[in-house]
Design a protein around this nucleic acid. Structure first.
Lengths: 318, 318
DNA sequence: CTGAAAGCGCTTACAG
DNA sequence: CTGAAAGCGCTTACAG
């Protein structure tokens, strides 16, 4: 450290001053700070972390940057991390399970203090392996979360029930369900739909032309008059395709989505949607990471969703 | 390293085997790998990076996770990074200039090999300071990019001209411009609009009620018949509010956006938009970071936008 | 392939 | 506050 030399003090003093050690006089702190700035000195992060054994870094792995749902959670994590004096490093799995595994291993190897995995696409063995090395909190609904990992999830059953109940209360008796996934969250929403919907289930899969089928069926005598879509993105596609096909929303088809992302307020008719408290879930995940770091046991926290009603499910009052 | 002990070999061999050093026999590599896996051994990233002087990490700073434009660029960066055997670490500035500065400094201090800043919100002094310590490439259009930093940007003037020309070619003579920013990119688009639009300029600012003003003016005898919005998000808001106000798009008002994000295809009418080659821009940024790392001089690469025509600017043929 | 040595840039006690 | 020492967990030559 030639900062020490230039300032005419010891290396120890420089180290202490730069770290903000309380036992350093204000005068020394100022001098050292000045000289360091003048010399453009920056402490070497690798060395500092190697010796201190603490990185003050939490790694966040997320499935899909493009998904507003995920990024809202990240915002919550970041807020809580900032308050706890942790920096957040993001890593991006791009919906690719293989890439997600590698990124998870990379974060562990990098040596972050804790990992928060905002993803439903990691298998239990991978999660378990990571959790054995570093405090790990999962946000979302993967196939299975190992005991060694913390977990924050949304109550999909309640959310789906809210959506279906809302439609049933409005008088709909032929309510369809639309999904594009077989993952646990979509499954849970579908199961709750089956339990709550009046009449027989009418299920469509967007991966196999389900949106077109749904809109065609809507015209039929016994066709659905409402649809609960497993997420907002799907619901927005229904709105778009409905407009293309001359199907009126909500008159011919009421639509409810899930997630209450930005999109819900931006499309027309604006989308009724189940809201997950995303920022709160992110905060809860960071809070749990902190308690794990402190040696606490893992927990499963379940966030309770609410329904936000907009025009896509409510006929305009004449 | 008790891996060495357990495998009955030297630390040097373990180190070489784990790094994939070519001078290690296949048999040794296998043995060491096995023992390391059995012991759950992971190399310490901090130590490895401290001694090797190379992190194999590139830090990406981005303004806004929620903006699909930014995340598409990140995908391009990641693709190119993967090919070059670099890992990407993301840091998030949340549209907050102050936070962006701190995050930039954090990345530098962390010790990544290069930084790519996907943002227009950093000031020249901050960029210069970072560039003095680490190869830095800026993607976007900040107030000023210092000579020491690489730069990849989009040709906003050309893009705006394409948008306005398209509307003028369709016969529009009263074309409005809508923005919500005074930043260089928005300014450049506005200036190109002024130069290319027939008739007098009609400029609206969404931050001060411009969308409502625009829609009101649209009904007037001399009101605008078309609008070029400085980005897709704004354009989507115009579509939504137009629907609310009974203004028909494109019959009463033709709309063109900028960025050609996912949103453009999802709204109705689908949005005509200027497309920036985002993935290519991301790749170019990573490629330039690599050349800077190799000691090359900085460059300014300008990507050329194209126009994607959809229903929001083209009356349906009867 | 081994084994002992030096060093990466810092922090952490500790005697003075 | 100083200064010398030890050590964090690795990699890098290098003689054998």
């Amino acid at each position: 450290m030639d900062v020490a030399h230039a300032a005419g003090v010891s290396k120890s003093l420089v180290s202490a001053a730069l770290r903000g050690d309380p036992g350093v006089s204000a005068e020394s702190r100022r001098r050292v700070g000045e000289v360091a700035a003048a010399l453009g000195y920056r402490t070497n992060g690798w060395a500092q972390r190697l010796v201190s054994g603490r990185s003050a870094l939490v790694g966040v792995l997320l499935t899909d940057l493009r998904n507003a749902y995920h990024t809202d959670i990240v915002n919550g994590i970041e807020d809580a991390a900032e308050e706890a004096a942790y920096d957040v490093i993001l890593s991006h799995g791009r919906r690719d399970p293989d890439l997600l595994r590698r990124r998870l291993a990379d974060l562990v190897e990098l040596g972050v203090d804790a990992v928060i995995a905002v993803t439903a696409h990691l298998d239990e063995p991978d999660l378990r392996q990571a959790a054995a090395r570093v405090p790990l909190v999962v946000v979302g609904r993967p196939a299975r979360v190992p005991d060694g990992a913390g977990w924050v999830s949304n109550d999909d059953e309640t959310g789906a029930r809210l959506a279906v109940q809302h439609l049933a209360d409005a008088g709909h008796t032929r309510i369809a369900f639309l999904a594009a996934s077989d993952r646990p969250a979509a499954r849970a929403r579908r199961d709750a739909y089956r339990a709550a919907a009046p009449g027989r289930p009418r299920e469509f899969d967007a991966r196999t032309g389900g949106i077109a089928d749904l809109l065609t069926a809507t015209g039929l005598p016994d066709g659905p008059t409402a649809v609960f879509a497993a997420n907002d993105r799907l619901a927005a596609e229904v709105l778009a395709r409905a407009a293309d096909h001359g199907v009126r929303v909500p008159e011919d088809l009421a639509v409810v989505g899930y997630d209450n992302t930005d999109l819900a307020g931006l499309v027309r008719p604006a989308l009724t949607s189940v809201d997950q408290p995303r920022a709160a879930m992110g905060r809860a995940a960071m809070a749990q990471a902190l308690t794990l770091l402190g040696g606490a046991a893992t927990a499963h926290e379940v966030a309770v969703p609410t329904l936000v009603i907009r025009a896509s499910s409510v006929p305009a009052t004449p």
